[in-house]
Design a protein around this nucleic acid. Structure first.
Length: 278
DNA sequence: TTGTGTTTTATTGCCTCC
DNA sequence: GGAGGCAATAAAACACAA
């Protein structure tokens, strides 16, 4: 027994021959109370040897005892000394047995609690993972869309520049003068006033958080990178969107020339395939 | 019936608190 | 220093398939 130096030694001796307990919990359920009491009496006699000596045998608590202990555990999972003694008296157990039962019960409860916590954490993790996967898919879809748009833009640019060259070299020169991205500070000033884009972007319905961009974005900087940043910030703030998207867009780099042509005053209408007419 | 895995009861050793 | 809590573990009791 634990701590034999203290009161444990007496408890140890007594607990070797615990009071009335059924040998088999099944018996308790099968027989009547009176008959069971008789059986218990016989068992108790059995547990004491012929000379009344204690035979060391571990015994399970009766269903009744366990139920009572469970009830008490529900009320308070720790035992004050008075409660322990009272409970022990009520159930015909040694206070030490009650204490041990509570101790073991607390250990079981803790294990179950850990399992519960693990289940909850795992569910959260799975949900997050699913969300992440959806975002990844969304990211890929957007990247593909961007690539497609860039290709179309390039195509349009090459076509229009060819036709302009053929029609009038003077107009071509004018276009060049107003070009947004000639790295000239003055030209940027012009673009600031004129460059205004109304775009509507529809994201695939498979998206976990489908959003609709309906933006009017003014170019405030010659850097295409920064333009995309402000563009995305609006989307994120307006749609509670995830930050990953910002990263995606930041990674999708237009070359300086591409972005310049994109916002060239003269070439704004070349995005007609992209606008919805709103 | 028996082997094996699980559950329950009890012990041990260490730690903290008063 | 004693009381009590906890983790780890032993051992008995139990459940169950083969």
């Amino acid at each position: 027994m634990k701590r034999p130096s203290s009161s444990g030694s007496l408890d140890a001796l007594i607990s070797i021959c615990p009071p009335k307990e059924e040998k088999n919990s099944k018996n308790k359920q099968v027989y009547s109370r009176e008959f069971q009491a008789m059986l218990d009496g016989l068992e108790e006699e059995d547990s004491l040897g012929e000379a009344g000596q204690a035979t060391e045998k571990k015994r399970r608590l009766s269903i009744h005892q366990v139920k009572a202990l469970e009830k008490n555990f529900e009320v308070e999972n720790k035992l004050e000394p008075e409660r322990k003694v009272k409970l022990a008296e009520e159930l015909g157990l040694q206070p030490r047995q009650v204490a041990i039962w509570f101790q073991n019960r607390r250990a079981r409860w803790k294990t179950k609690q850990l399992e519960k916590d693990y289940t909850i954490l795992k569910a959260n993790y799975d949900a997050l993972k699913l969300d992440y996967n959806n975002l990844e898919q969304e990211k890929e879809a957007l990247t593909a869309k961007l690539r497609e748009l860039k290709a179309k833009l390039k195509e349009e640019n090459s076509e229009s520049s060819q036709s302009v060259k053929e029609d009038s070299p003077k107009v071509s020169q004018q276009t060049k003068d107003h070009d947004f991205c000639d790295n000239d500070d003055d030209s940027i000033g012009i673009v600031k006033e004129d460059c205004n884009v109304n775009a509507q972007l529809l994201i695939s319905p498979a998206s976990s958080s489908p959003f609709r961009f309906n933006g009017s974005s003014s170019c405030s900087d010659s850097s295409n990178h920064q333009w995309f940043q402000s563009f995305d910030s609006r989307m994120i703030l307006g749609n509670m969107y995830h930050p990953q998207l910002v990263k995606v867009e930041e990674q999708c780099t237009f070359t300086a020339e591409e972005s310049c042509n994109f916002f060239s005053v003269d070439q704004a209408p070349t995005l007609q395939w992209y606008f919805t007419g709103q």
